[in-house]
Design a protein around this nucleic acid. Structure first.
Lengths: 218, 218
DNA sequence: ACAATAATATGAGATATCTCATATTTTGCA
DNA sequence: TGCAAAATATGAGATATCTCATATTATTGT
């Protein structure tokens, strides 16, 4: 994690939209590289984050110790909002998929004032409700389509430099299909020359086809 | 819709949890019967509702004019929260499944103060975030189970006096399966003597079996 | 009262996806 | 270094669910 000069980024932070008090002076700007952990599981997060650039995976660890991918988040989204609202919240782990630039508002001086700022709370409620609406729409639409389409979208979301290298176990859990079927569909993509297997990874060979498959979801 | 004396209900309304200002004097208590419309689609809703007793269906009408069931809500939940947060929100229709008693806070005098009440907004944000978490959990778990289980739950939720009489078209849309398959599964239930077909309706003959099937979802 | 539309109903074949069985390879760790 | 566990891989048969075709029965508007 790197600390950046905020001057050049701060103008992109919708401060007036979200806050009625002057939070700007507390805001820090961080940069993360692929694979960096923005939030570690179960730790008390110390910041409310707002994603300026990049995307990240959100994980939770089950009782059995298995890590499960539960979401992918991107620019314009908050991280740490749950921790802010719920006194003791078991944080989910968050890991950068691509280079990320985030605004970070430290809980230490800002938590109390944020939770008393009606403008912020109203916007936060709107944000959460919109996200919930999105999620619901996503989930219900999703059921209607075969794995092919959802996998295409997932590959596009998670591939780094056109190389897809996710663990199958995690993915079939996330997409709600069997391991067998996931492998089957990946094999199909290779057969259709959409992907090419490269040892343990898959290289994207026909991105527009993937985009086509994933766009059907919208 | 009937207006009830609030004195006997008001004590069950978690006013202290949700509001920092005295909203009690504005609260009204309404009762609805099965089939009554609490909110009509597209109308500007005039109240923020809190469900004290009963459950209701939430509908939206698509471009093609078809009504789609999108949710079922019950005690402890809010209605009209979206309308409160979003200046112009296209209300979804809400219809009582059972006798309902709701607390109604009129927007006219209360909207402004509510949107400036940090305590209320914080609790609302928490409520919405918890609901979102629930929904997400529901949706993802749900994919894992065959229609049998989800249908069992749905029948229990919507049957009135042990009679199930939903439109199939609505239901297969809501549950995300084909019409054909829904009919198939209903026929199965009849064959197993869980339901009995009674003209166009279905009578529940083995409720505990239905409960068993639906509990697998949790 | 009748025609048009919507809802119900059922059959048959196709397909997406699952389960189970089993083998090989990689990885973590003592 | 080597063993146990995890991850990858593939086959074959089962099943949940879909699509399409086609009838019959309600409902609705004019």
């Amino acid at each position: 994690m790197y600390r950046l000069q905020k001057s050049e980024y701060i103008q992109h932070f919708p401060i007036n939209k979200y806050f009625s008090y002057n939070v700007e002076s507390y805001v820090e700007v961080f940069e993360y590289k692929v694979g960096d952990w923005i939030i570690e599981e179960g730790m008390n997060s110390n910041y409310l984050f707002y994603i300026h650039t990049g995307k990240a995976k959100v994980f939770v660890t089950h009782q059995n110790g298995k890590m499960a991918l539960i979401n992918i988040v991107g620019a314009g989204e908050f991280l740490g909002d749950m921790e802010l609202l719920h006194e003791q919240y078991y944080s989910k782990a968050v890991q950068a998929i691509s280079t990320m630039i985030v605004f970070a508002i430290p809980f230490k001086p800002c938590r109390e004032p944020l939770l008393e700022d009606a403008k912020f709370l109203k916007q936060l409620a709107i944000y959460i409700s919109e996200k919930a609406t999105d999620m619901t729409a996503k989930y219900s639409q999703r059921l209607a389509f075969p794995l092919e389409n959802r996998l295409a979208e997932f590959i596009l979301q998670t591939a780094v430099d056109d190389i897809y290298r996710e663990k199958h176990v995690l993915v079939c859990d996330y997409l709600g299909v069997s391991y067998r079927h996931l492998l089957f569909t990946l094999a199909q993509f290779c057969e259709e020359d959409i992907l090419a297997k490269d040892g343990r990874n898959y290289r994207i060979r026909n991105k527009s086809r993937l985009i086509g498959l994933s766009e059907i979801l919208k």
